[in-house]
Design a protein around this nucleic acid. Structure first.
Lengths: 226, 226, 226, 226
DNA sequence: GATGAATGAGCTTTCATTCAT
DNA sequence: GATGAATGAAAGCTCATTCAT
């Protein structure tokens, strides 16, 4: 939605290389942590002088916020789109998980920085991010609640706890992707979807419904990632 | 088992207040992150001078290792004990989750520091911790695999992925405990156990077995925590 | 020969004021000793802030190496030139002593630091300096040995011991120059040359030769110092 | 003469192990320099706790003075005894050199500390040492002057410069003893005596006198070192 | 005679930031 | 658009010294 840069990214005129600089910051913050990273580290990645960074950013903190914002950017929007679909709860949950994990393929640094470093931002920035996050969470929760109410998911499933489980499980993927052979993003996605649906669905024997639902669980083939 | 202090905790003779100092470090590292925390912050918590910390520690890094070691200390041992029990897989998984989350009540700082800050340790210390962690993971995985092989858990459950799910879900609890009303440690524990068992169990209708198993799922009433 | 700065002097691009900073370090290290001198002391001499020193140097140690290297720089080269001359051994020894002492007029601080503080450098730097020193010693020894073999110096003069005597005597001058009235660099130079030649020369009465040699003993009038 | 401890060595009651402690300090100061040495280093050598040193010393500075005083202790006295002898100037110079170098065999650490570290003492202590030193120098100078006046040494020999040469050469031995094979204390002593006498003696051909004198140059066989 | 505990002062070094160019 | 030079502030750490025991 709002494509404007995070506050602190010098934005009178958006600079040409800004995205590149933010990516370098993401990489460095992800590897060394915000406080463990120096602006020199970022400059090194870019092959420029450290002072030159300040042409793009007001401060190191502003760079962190830019990275976090970029990391969080599309989650709420995508969840909203999924929410609007006419589809089974199971299919929606599958799509949620898929879109939660997909950025870990190409924007893992941003995701990691958002997850681990956003807490070092000053309150205003943190609140801006928290707002985005809450929008996202609310869509997730609503999707689950809808499926409970429709009878597709167990009546005794607590949507809040289910949301936390979905997000907790999803976030944990960021730590594991690519760390062991066999633990690929695809694999994790498939297994987590499966796991969550088994846990969420109403298991009262209503064979017909269940079969039907299941046939729609498959991961979205050509889902747009962005 | 070996109760010896982490290397770098000045230990020729263990100092009397060492445990207290480590706890203060845990608190500060948990709040501000390792790199964001200053030794002065730790000293402030203790009400001593900053230089005095170095009577107890060789370095800030050594303090971090001590905190992490303490945070990881009993996991493997407890998992091993659970593994040895004569009990259903479901009961064992319930106990695993219970003991995974229980320290988040009284040693949350240690847990958080272990989870988030251990990566800033130099390789040797990190490897020592990783070894402890792997022992733990191996017991978890074995417990799950046993239950798969006994037919209690689904035949198509991948023990490795199930382990990662259990741990990922469990660790996510550290972020949520006490952050919203209603999201208590007890609640999380109960729901996560339920969620995992629904996902793990063989759902082929074998009513007799299932009932029986379920009646033993309850969380351990008087489980010793240590 | 190679005019490149000592390692550790930040030298990607040599900074403009580097020579000035090294001189200040020499002065302070000479007065207070390496370990007794603080980087603040050096900054005070320069009238800059202490942190600014680190724009020029990687470390205090690197500054010490730079001072020592500068202190030792031209000795070997000058000894080599003297060795190549077509001249009597006596004249060469006179020139050696002259050039050994001459830097004590304008670069005494560097000399003193080299003599007294180089031992505090880490092994690699110390070895670099030792290599320069050995080149110098070897030329001195060769000059003496040549004069022994030509019959100008006593046949029973041990060139190694004579070298150590020359250097030992020469270095001791650094401690005395300007400390008492009458003990000037000129005076010391003249007397040490005289002393060494009396000790080195063949005193078998060969009047003709001796006279001849002696007439060339005078110190070089307009010797270039560099 | 004055066998009282240096000021600052706690001396109300002279402690039993004091000499041992001073020796440890000498060792450490010699190796690392006064400012580069910590009291912990000294305690380590002794196998006691660092705080325990303060049972023996008021301060690190006091320990340095004790070491220096011990290093300088007997020089003046021995020079005085040599001065009083009825002997040739050559024999006296030989004895002076011998006694100047002899302590480098068993008390090298003290000698090195005196030579290199005394300058870090506060003025009063430095002056006390300087007084001892000057007494020594004066005896050396007097011995040389006597030999000049008696006609044994060259009439144009400047006693002050000759003294500085003798001391400078002698002190340089401390740096070389034991550093190369063949450069032993004995060897240095013999060669330096020879060198100095060749330089000092009247070389006007008075063959009879010279032979005679030479036969008495030998080093003192059973000279007491202390 | 010796030590465990603690500290004040000072150290070297790092670092985000500024600014004239 | 970028940089060389410099700095204020703070960091981790060392160390001589003290003192109650």
């Amino acid at each position: 939605m709002s494509q404007q840069p995070a506050p602190g990214v010098k934005s009178a005129k958006p600079k040409r290389r800004t995205a590149e600089i933010v990516a370098a910051a993401a990489k460095v913050f992800a590897r060394r942590g915000y406080h463990g990273a120096s602006t020199q580290d970022i400059a090194d990645v870019l092959g420029i002088r450290q002072a030159s960074l300040y042409y793009y950013f007001d401060s190191k903190e502003a760079a962190l916020e830019a990275v976090c914002t970029e990391g969080m950017r599309d989650y709420a929007l995508r969840a909203q789109r999924i929410h609007r679909r006419h589809d089974s709860g199971a299919a929606k949950v599958a799509a949620l998980v898929f879109h939660h994990l997909a950025p870990m393929a190409d924007k893992l640094d941003f995701t990691l920085v958002f997850l681990r470093e956003r807490r070092f931002l000053p309150a205003p920035a943190r609140q801006r991010l928290r707002a985005m996050e809450r929008r996202y969470e609310r869509f997730v929760e609503r999707i689950i609640r809808d499926a409970v109410e429709s009878g597709e998911f167990r009546a005794d499933l607590d949507p809040r706890m289910a949301t936390l489980a979905l997000l907790g499980l999803g976030n944990s993927a960021a730590l594991w992707v690519g760390r062991e052979p066999g633990v690929t993003l695809d694999r994790i996605t498939r297994d987590y979807v499966d796991l969550l649906l088994r846990a969420f669905r109403d298991d009262t024997p209503k064979p017909a419904r269940r079969r039907a639902a299941r046939s729609k669980d498959r991961l979205p083939e050509e889902e747009e990632t962005t």
